[in-house]
Simulated assay, not measured.
Amino acid sequence: MKSVVLFLALFSSVSAFAQVEQELDSFGGNEALYLKAQALNPEVQNEVVQNRFINRTNRVEASLEGSSVFGGDAYNRTNNIGFNAHYHINPHWSIGAKYNYGINKLTPEGTAMVREAAQEAERNPENPSILFPQVIYPKSELLGLINWYPIVGKLSFGSWGVAHFDTYFTAGYGTMELGSNSPMASSNAGVATLGAGLGFWLGSNLTTRVEYRAEQYSAQYYDRTEDMLTGVASLQVGWIL
């Protein structure tokens, strides 16, 4: 009789432990359920496997982008609007393309230099002592990209819910159209980029990315070739098809 009671108690404990383990979700779980499972069998180390919130195998992600450029020509500042398309091979790798259109304006220093040059040209049109500064700026760029997503996590926004995210690294190469205020109105240059970011998955389709990239390209001035190294900080909002 004692053997039967002991068997029933052991069977009940194992069944309860298995049920609690099934109730644990795969992305953090309920802490109370986790503690119950641990208490039922303290000798077993329980681990939670963090599955990704959105299945990103063989799916296409399209997004709009706004970005700011840091560095480049000292007399110019650039902001971009753009479009991104990514094909997700699996949750860890994707390939894609990025197009940005540059919105440029002179810095306060550049504006002052142009004003002084214009005033000097009025005073001494034959032989001005102050020349207009040459400004070279990015008009547009088209890049091919490869992205790697090594780490997944989640953030709680209280009553608003939980946002799942991936950290990722990106690398790419493409072409940039450069504009100028000189007679050489525009030219093309090869551009390489390397960066990192966070991709937030806010639902089954809505995506948001916060990204920072370094870009390298060459700009041809009158008397020299300047190697430009700029930083690009961007916010992207998109949709997974």
Rank of each mutant, 00 (worst) to 15 (best):
S182A: 14
P150W: 09
L178A: 11
G172Y: 09
T107R: 07
W148Y: 15
G199Y: 00
G161F: 02
G158S: 11
P128F: 03
G158L: 11
L202P: 02
G153R: 08
G110P: 05
K98V: 06
S129N: 04
V135N: 07
L143H: 04
H164N: 15
K154T: 08
G190F: 10
Y101W: 14
S129M: 03
E116D: 07
E116V: 01
G197L: 08
P128Q: 03
G144K: 04
P138Y: 02
I130F: 00
N147R: 10
G158T: 11
T167M: 11
E116C: 00
A171W: 05
V191T: 11
L194H: 05
V114E: 13
K154G: 06
K105H: 15
G161T: 05
A196F: 11
M176F: 09
A196L: 12
Y168A: 02
Y173N: 07
S186A: 15
V152T: 13
T170Y: 01
G179V: 11
W148Q: 02
G110N: 06
F157Y: 15
P108W: 07
A117E: 09
A163F: 06
T193V: 12
W201I: 01
P108F: 07
L143G: 03
P125M: 12
W160P: 00
A117I: 08
Y173T: 11
S204P: 06
V191W: 00
K154E: 10
T207F: 05
E120F: 01
R209P: 00
S186L: 07
A163V: 09
R115S: 13
I146V: 15
A118K: 13
F132H: 01
L198N: 03
G153L: 08
S182R: 05
L202T: 01
L198Q: 05
L194F: 15
W160D: 08
F165A: 12
I130S: 01
I130E: 02
F169D: 02
L142P: 02
M113L: 14
